[in-house]
Each structure stands twice: as C-alpha cells, then as structure tokens.
C-alpha cells in the first residue's frame, strides 16, 4: 500500500475534521481508495469519509488493509507540510506508518491496534435540503452562537431559517434565496431540527476552508447530514443526532 497526495490541504482538512470527534482513528485502504468512519464516544456525531484513488497523485493498494493512528500524533506530522508539499504514506514491514512530507522529511510513526468495529449509518429519509457556501454557514453558526448553544433549522417549501434560543435571548436568521451564497432550499415536508453547536462548530471550522458549497439535509427531529465537497476528496459526510423535546 502506498498513497501520495497532491498538496497537503485535503489531508489536513480530513485529519482536522476527524480530530474533532475521536483520539484514535482507523483508516481502511482498498484498491478504490482510503476511507474512514467513526463516531464520537457519546455517539452523537459521526464522520464518514471516502477518498477515492483518483484524488491521489499516486495510489496503489494490492490488498485491503486497516491501519490505526493516534490522531494528535498524525496531525503533528501532517502540520509540518507546507501547502504545496505532497504527503506520501505507506506501511513498513515493522508495522510503522511511513510518512514522507514534501521531498525530504521522512517520518515513521507507530501504528496502534485498531479496535474499530463497523459503524452503520443512520437509516432515515431526508425531507429537507439547504445548500449554501461553507463561509456563509460558518458565519450563521457564529451569529447563533452568541445567544444559544444549539442551532435550529427550519424549512417550509423553498423557504428556510436558522435560529437559536438561550438564557440571554434568541435569534432568527431568514435565508434569502437571492443571496448568492445560498444555492438551494427545498423541502418535501416542513421540517424543524435542533442540533448542538458544540459538535457543529469545530467540524465546520476544520473543513470549511477547503469546502466550497456544503449541503445540509435533515428531517424533523432526525439526524442532520452535512456533505462537504472538498475539491480533491470524494466526500466528507458529517452526521449529527438531534436534540428533541422530552
């Protein structure tokens, strides 16, 4: 197995996103590419990444392998790469991860026993969809955060709004379809879902810079799924369980 990236931004974004959820990550490499799926310890959020072989400058994988890393250790190495540096990874016979950063920095990092079990994805229909620029979404999260720890998303036909409510007050942000940052608002059914900013904010900050447009899909009182389209990466899906009235 060997994979070489084109520049370091995508791998940095991926590792940064994963680091918001877990301390240890198990990646799966197959002939098709590299994937990761994992949930935070409380099972509130899940990240599902598929990074196709076509996104790499060089990629080879003769047989499927799993490899586990401590995300903070891996992250430190990856951060030594400049934006244009490629990052090449392979696994040594001594079961170390070989990480070549740029042309001349050759790291070896210990792998960890991977304890990964297969994580399923939530099986739900998505009634509503909002597509908007990640920078706009990041701003909206900031706007809501000043009064609330939770984001409520509401859609009705082709209208939508984001809102939040806390001890100090509340906010409603109507989405304007003429705004060039908003690409689509659609709903098969009126939907309202409330999600924790504690989980949303870090992942949007981590991937936001490399993602252009993001797609939020949800149904009333059901998980939210956000798709980040990162130039070179197949997809990053982020799932977040809702908060519901009890």
């Amino acid at each position: 197995f060997g994979a070489k990236t084109n520049g370091s931004d995508d791998l940095k974004a991926i590792i940064s996103a994963i680091s918001t959820l877990v301390e240890e990550a198990t990646f799966v490499a197959t002939a098709e590419g590299i994937s990761f799926r994992g949930m935070d310890p409380s099972h509130v959020a899940l990240i599902d990444i598929s990074w196709p072989n076509s996104a790499f400058e060089k990629y080879e994988c003769d047989s499927d392998i799993k490899f586990g890393v401590r995300i903070d250790e891996f992250s430190k190495l990856i951060k030594r790469a400049d934006k244009k540096d490629s990052i090449e990874i392979s696994i040594s016979e001594q079961n170390m991860l070989l990480v070549t950063v740029g042309k001349n920095k050759k790291y070896k990092m210990r792998l960890i026993e991977s304890s990964a079990t297969d994580t399923p994805l939530p099986k739900i229909p998505y009634d509503s969809k909002i597509m908007l620029s990640s920078s706009k979404f990041d701003k909206i999260l900031g706007d809501v955060q000043v009064v609330s720890d939770y984001l409520t998303i509401h859609t009705s036909d082709s209208k939508g709004d984001f809102s939040g409510k806390g001890d100090s007050g509340e906010v409603v942000i109507d989405l304007d379809k003429d705004d060039e940052d908003i690409e689509e608002i659609s709903s098969k059914e009126d939907s309202v879902g409330t999600y924790s900013l504690e989980y949303l904010n870090p992942v949007v900050k981590a991937v936001g810079n490399t993602a252009g447009v993001i797609t939020c899909e949800f149904s009333s009182a059901k998980p939210l799924r956000i798709e980040f389209k990162v130039a070179n990466i197949g997809r990053i899906h982020f799932y977040l369980a809702p908060r519901v009235e009890s």
């Binding site: 099972h43 509130v44 399923p120 998980p223 799932y239 369980a241 809702p242 519901v244 009890s246």
Partner: peptide, 11 residues
Amino acid sequence: LMRQKTLSDFF
C-alpha cells in the same frame, strides 16, 4: 425540556 438523542437511536 430538550434531550440529546444519539445516532444509535436511528440505526
């Protein structure tokens, strides 16, 4: 009162 659900509730 709001309660946090888990993703496992939807598997």
